[in-house]
């Protein structure tokens, strides 16, 4: 109990961030039309790629002769980057199509 209380006290700021972020995440998403579920999932997927910063720190703090850590960190940076870059590019490709879909009606009505 005492450990828990002292933990809460010493990490109060982080707890505030966590709790507010939870509500923020729920609030931001809750009214999204089902049309956007797929791109939104993909976009959120890219955002958690921010984990790459952790892997950069791991590699950056490793000494140059600790090959195990270097190898693990190297792989971590690669997969983290794949998550970030791939996630954003794929989301952009999906949303690009929505945009062209939206511009089309003005053209087709003109033809009519």
């Amino acid at each position: 109990m005492e450990i828990l209380l002292s933990f809460i006290h010493s990490n109060l700021e982080i707890l505030y961030i966590v709790i507010l972020s939870v509500f923020l995440g729920i609030e931001v998403i809750s009214r999204v039309p089902s049309v956007l579920h797929t791109p939104l999932m993909s976009g959120a997927n890219a955002i958690h790629g921010v984990i790459i910063i952790g892997s950069i720190i791991v590699m950056g703090e490793a000494s140059a002769d600790n090959f195990v850590v270097l190898a693990l960190g190297f792989v971590a940076v690669i997969v983290g980057t794949i998550n970030v870059v791939g996630g954003f590019v794929v989301t952009d490709r999906m949303l690009e199509m929505f945009k062209s879909g939206k511009e089309k009606p003005s053209k087709s009505t003109k033809v009519k």
Partner: peptide, 26 residues
């Protein structure tokens, strides 16, 4: 993010965590 006391990882992670959970329910 908590481990490194890194705010951008913390907020990004929690944001996706809660948004993803709501999206799953939706």
């Amino acid at each position: 993010g908590f481990l490194y006391n890194n705010q951008v990882m913390l907020t990004g992670g929690i944001l996706v965590g809660s948004a993803g959970a709501i999206l799953t329910i939706l």
